[in-house]
Simulated assay, not measured.
Amino acid sequence: MVTIKRRKLKLDHEPVPGEFITVEVLGKPCRVTVLDVDDKSVTVDGNHPLAGETVTYAITIEGILSRID
Results as ranks from 00 to 15, higher is better:
Met1Leu: 09
Thr3His: 07
Thr3Ser: 15
Thr3Phe: 11
Lys5Gln: 02
Arg6Glu: 04
Arg6Asn: 10
Arg7Ile: 14
Lys8Val: 07
Lys8Thr: 10
Lys8Ala: 01
Lys8Asn: 09
Leu9Trp: 06
Lys10Arg: 13
Lys10Gln: 10
Leu11Cys: 09
Asp12Gly: 12
Asp12Ala: 06
Asp12Glu: 09
His13Phe: 15
His13Cys: 01
Glu14Pro: 00
Glu14Tyr: 03
Glu14Cys: 04
Glu14Ile: 06
Pro15Met: 11
Pro15Gly: 08
Val16Trp: 01
Val16Phe: 04
Pro17Asn: 09
Gly18Lys: 01
Glu19Lys: 07
Phe20Asn: 04
Ile21Lys: 02
Thr22Gly: 03
Thr22Asp: 13
Thr22Lys: 10
Val23Asp: 02
Val23Gly: 00
Glu24Trp: 00
Glu24Leu: 01
Glu24Ile: 00
Val25Met: 02
Leu26His: 03
Gly27Val: 08
Cys30Met: 11
Cys30Ala: 10
Arg31Tyr: 00
Arg31Phe: 00
Arg31Asn: 03
Val32Glu: 03
Val32His: 01
Thr33Glu: 11
Thr33Met: 09
Leu35Phe: 07
Leu35Gln: 12
Leu35Gly: 01
Leu35Lys: 14
Asp36Tyr: 12
Val37Asn: 14
Asp38Lys: 07
Asp38Tyr: 11
Asp38Ile: 11
Asp39Lys: 11
Lys40Val: 15
Lys40Trp: 08
Ser41Asn: 14
Ser41Pro: 07
Val42Gly: 14
Thr43His: 11
Thr43Arg: 15
Thr43Ser: 15
Thr43Gln: 15
Val44Leu: 07
Val44His: 06
Val44Gly: 02
Val44Ile: 15
Asp45Glu: 10
Gly46Ala: 12
Gly46Ser: 11
Asn47Ile: 02
Asn47His: 15
Asn47Asp: 14
His48Arg: 10
His48Gly: 00
His48Pro: 01
Pro49Lys: 10
Pro49Ile: 04
Pro49Val: 06
Leu50His: 14
Gly52Gln: 13
Thr54Phe: 12
Thr54Met: 10
Thr54Glu: 15
Val55Ala: 09
Val55Tyr: 06
Tyr57Ser: 06
Tyr57Arg: 09
Tyr57His: 11
Ala58Gly: 04
Ala58Thr: 15
Ala58Trp: 06
Ile59Pro: 01
Ile59Tyr: 14
Ile59Arg: 12
Ile59Leu: 13
Ile59Asp: 15
Thr60Lys: 09
Glu62Gln: 11
Gly63Lys: 12
Ile64Cys: 08
Ile64Gly: 03
Leu65His: 11
Leu65Arg: 09
Leu65Thr: 08
Leu65Val: 04
Ser66Arg: 10
Ser66Val: 07
Ser66Lys: 09
Arg67Lys: 10
Ile68Phe: 03
Ile68Tyr: 01
Asp69Ala: 00
